[in-house]
Amino acid sequence: MSDQAVLRLAPTDAAGSAPPPPAPAVPADGFEGLPPEADGRRVWAALGRAHRLAAAYRGGDPASGVDPDTLGRLMTDVDARFGIGSTLSVCIQIATAVPLLTLGGEPAARVLHDALAGRAVVALAASDEGSGADLAGLGTTVAVDDDGVTVTGTKRWITSALYADHLLVLARHRESRHFTSFTWVLVPADAPGVTVEPAETPLFDGSGTGHIRLDRVQLPREHIVGRVGRGMTSFAAHIAVERLTGTLWGVALCARMLRRTKERLQGRAYGDGTLWQLEGIQQRFAAALLRTHELAALVDRLGRRAARHDTAAAALLKAGAARTVNSVLAECAQLHGAEGFAAGGAQWTRAQAALWSIGGGTTEIVLTAVAGSADALLAELPS
């Protein structure tokens, strides 16, 4: 059929002219054309184009908090398609870095707009050289005066550092370890005095994890995010949402690995049947499935509280996720047998799952927080 014939057959509007062609449909998950090995920056950009980043927050506003249901679907979709490193980059930005930008400051407002559109990546630079989980021991400093700020220090194991446009840096503005001694500064990644090098690990390819050196980086005072002295307080509140997001992701990862493991067991011949038909194998699998359902039930009960910055609820979720993800993925890796040691196999994923016991606060620190809220948490249980 000729082009002219096609045109003659096209429907017309009341005026007799052909209507404009429909706009291209946005794929449901936003990932059309992205390969599984896409890094976190490309995944973030795709989510922004599909308007899925703003949709994760109530009313599309990060200042209003996340919507756990929408956020859970987003993390499930990203985990299903991309590697743990790329998913980690999305997790930290959407849970912590982006909401912190709402605290104020003109540069922060501009970057927030670009980040939600997927045009900008923001690396959360909290942990310091030598400080680890002891954020009060940060060595990175910010000198604040009427003319501007000067940031000096080293940040290690920072997700998205290698491809970030901006660094949200937690720094000390006075010597005291008091929680009022810390301030957020938004540092352009290309500012003079900023250098970034890759972290020494292949475990989280796609995450852009690196080490950042800040050598007397000078910026206008407007690059302070929020009020001077409120950095630690705001971080403590927003880490609750990061712990919720990590738990939602943990449920999705466990479910994905269990499905993959069951398929393998059903396809692996053993005697006259398959490995799946062995009662002992079924019991081990069922125990891992039970733990995953327990974690999902914990999210259902506590997720909305954590989304409202309830630190006790978030600590319970984080501790539960660390134990569940590690145990379920260890069981899956064992059930995969020797094939689990193949490149990208279940044993590799098991090694990456150690992240849940360290990132966002080690399990020991989080359990201490749970103990600190013991009276309130006990009161919630039947007596």
Rank of each mutant, 00 (worst) to 15 (best):
H173F: 07
A296S: 13
R259M: 11
L355Y: 15
N326H: 08
Q277W: 00
A95K: 09
E242T: 12
A10E: 06
F82R: 00
L168A: 13
G273A: 14
Q266P: 03
R259D: 15
T233L: 03
H211Q: 03
R213I: 01
H336I: 04
V66G: 13
G30Q: 09
A287M: 03
A296Q: 14
L253P: 02
A338M: 10
D77E: 15
G130F: 07
V194P: 00
A315P: 02
T180W: 03
A143V: 11
T180R: 10
V217E: 01
A252L: 14
A269S: 12
E200T: 01
S207N: 04
T247C: 10
Y57I: 01
A371R: 02
E380T: 11
G40Y: 07
V78H: 04
Q218A: 08
D3W: 06
R156N: 10
L329N: 12
A171P: 08
R213N: 02
T349D: 15
A50F: 06
R260E: 14
P68F: 00
P24W: 00
D67M: 07
V66T: 12
V151P: 01
S373F: 07
L290H: 14
E263P: 01
I365M: 13
R81G: 05
V325L: 02
L88D: 10
G60R: 13
L355T: 04
A252E: 04
V151G: 00
P24L: 05
L170F: 13
G303V: 05
H166T: 12
T70E: 11
R259L: 12
A120Y: 12
R308I: 10
H51Q: 14
W249R: 14
T311Y: 06
L167R: 06
W348N: 09
L138C: 14
L290G: 09
F31A: 04
L248N: 09
T140E: 11
E32R: 12
L316V: 15
L253I: 09
A312Q: 01
I224P: 07
S327F: 03
S160M: 02
S357I: 00
L298P: 02
A306T: 10
G359Y: 05
V328F: 11
T87S: 15
L355V: 11
V111S: 10
S64K: 14
N326K: 09
R301W: 02
S327W: 02
A95F: 11
E175S: 08
A252S: 14
I84S: 14
A252P: 04
I84W: 13
L316N: 08
V122C: 01
A54D: 05
A312S: 06
P99W: 15
T209A: 10
V6G: 12
P20H: 06
D300N: 02
D79I: 08
L378Y: 03
R350P: 04
S2P: 02
R260V: 14
A54V: 05
I224T: 03
R304C: 02
V149E: 02
A353W: 11
P202C: 01
H223T: 04
P35R: 04
I158G: 07
H113R: 15
A342Y: 02
S160F: 04
A108Q: 08
Y270L: 13
G65V: 09
A80I: 07
A286H: 10
D375Y: 00
P202L: 00
G320V: 05
D29R: 04
R305L: 13
G267I: 03
V228C: 07
R81C: 04
S131M: 10
L295C: 03
S234L: 01
S373K: 03
D67I: 08
G210T: 12
G105P: 09
